[in-house]
């Protein structure tokens, strides 16, 4: 049985020690159903699907290492991970915010339609794959360091920002960046090893720079770092050259 105890005032604490995925998530859902708005998970060791499908104004602090698909289908909550996150962080999320004080694995923000993901360190392969945007909502992923191959693959909307902090030799090792991309934008500092044939690299405009600045401020706030810590140097942007990459593929 899950061990639970209410701690100081508003924050509801769940000790994940010894709980498997299903029981931990049951405990989280139960506390939400009981009206708790601030939840803290301690000793998380790879339990998956945390906060999957949760809705509304919730604050969830995770201490330890959550497993795959944290915040999947999420619609509203704010999650702070005090450690690393694994694959599928923010999978198909609709709105809300995930702040990771470490690194994330592959397919971060897969098919997200809204919400924001801030990662202090680096991200794995296929970050932002098939992100979309719709009506007012526009997903945003901010990565402090770098990301792996196929960054922004199939992207149909949204924003990925790579700060390139700690980048060796000023080159992101990602190849095939933006392959199949047909919407959205990737901002990055530094060079990339290779890009997809559907995208072009352009200079940022004044409007882009103002937008990036806002995200940098949020990054400093989330990770409690100074303005100097977000690095120097200008950003470039990758955008798709067509919203119809497959327009001439077929014979009718």
């Amino acid at each position: 049985m899950p061990t639970m105890h209410a701690s100081s005032s508003e924050v509801y604490t769940i000790d994940a020690q010894g709980l498997d995925t299903r029981h931990l998530n049951q405990a989280v859902r139960k506390s939400v159903n009981n009206g708790h708005r601030e939840i803290e998970l301690l000793n998380v060791t790879g339990q998956r699907y945390i906060a999957a499908g949760l809705q509304g104004d919730l604050q969830i602090d995770i201490h330890g290492t959550p497993g795959n698909d944290i915040g999947a289908f999420m619609d509203g909550p704010t999650i702070r991970v005090h450690g690393n996150a694994q694959d599928g962080c923010g999978n198909t999320m609709n709105s809300g915010e995930i702040v990771v004080h470490g690194d994330v694995g592959d397919i971060t923000g897969l098919s997200a339609r809204g919400g924001r993901i801030f990662v202090r360190g680096n991200a794995g392969y296929r970050t932002g794959v098939h992100m979309k945007e719709f009506q007012g909502s526009r997903p945003i992923i901010v990565i402090g360091g770098s990301a792996g191959d196929y960054l922004g693959e199939y992207m149909a909307g949204g924003v990925v920002l790579l700060l390139g902090l700690g980048l060796e030799g000023g080159v992101h090792q990602a190849d095939f960046v933006g392959t199949g991309m047909h919407g959205g934008v990737i901002y990055l500092r530094g060079e990339v090893r290779g890009i997809g044939r559907e995208v072009a690299i352009l200079d940022t405009t004044e409007e882009d720079r103002r937008f990036i600045e806002g995200l940098l401020k949020d990054y400093t706030k989330h990770f409690n770092v100074g303005v100097k810590d977000v690095g120097e140097g200008s950003f470039k942007k990758l955008i798709p050259v067509s919203s119809r990459p497959y327009g001439t593929l077929y014979t009718y």
């Binding site: 599928g88 897969l110 098939h130 199939y154 919407g183």
Partner: peptide
């Protein structure tokens, strides 16, 4: 839930499923 007039692309694989274990997830 996508912009009007853009191709709606369904990739050949699910990008979070490369194995039975991934499907299980």
């Amino acid at each position: 839930m996508i912009p009007k007039g853009t191709d709606a692309i369904s990739p050949a694989p699910h990008h979070d499923i490369y194995s039975i274990e991934d499907l299980s997830q």
